[in-house]
Design a binder for these strands. Structure first.
Length: 119
DNA sequence: ATACTGACCCCCG
DNA sequence: ACGGGGGCCAGTA
């Protein structure tokens, strides 16, 4: 089945909303998860158009080399870095990002509390 | 219509 | 590290 052209951005946003706290992914990977392989630029463009007050985790998207896409020292860089740190990621001064340690248990608790905790 | 520009990606010297 | 080539494609001039 083929997405209509104007549904691609919403597919990107849906894939973004489905990312996990403390994780990071590349633009290309985001596009692929949205069913749009090879469309990294589209993913980047969609993110660039997000309203500043967006609740979506745009900051979890980094370059394929695991670095923040913005220039180090820029306001956008600082913002993204701060949000990533807040989720437990490590971010070097140059922008290299290491995802937060995520375990099945912590993810389960993040999503469902202790209701279905795993031994 | 052509030309340049991006929060990009991959491969090869 | 650094550069070149190709893919991708909507927006802007």
């Amino acid at each position: 089945m083929q997405m209509t052209a104007d549904s691609s951005p919403s597919a990107i946003l849906a894939a973004l909303a489905a990312t996990s706290p403390g994780s990071v992914l590349g633009y290309g990977e985001l596009a692929a998860r949205a069913g749009l392989p090879g469309r990294a630029r589209l993913a980047a463009r969609v993110l660039s158009q997000l309203p500043s007050g967006s609740q979506l985790p745009w900051y979890r998207v980094v370059r394929a080399n695991h670095c923040i896409a913005f220039a180090p020292g820029s306001a956008d860089f600082a913002r993204q870095r701060q949000l990533l740190l807040a989720e437990g990621c490590e971010v070097s001064d140059s922008g290299r990002v290491k995802p937060a340690r995520t375990t099945v248990r912590s993810l389960d608790q993040e999503l469902w509390g202790d209701m279905f905790s795993v031994p």
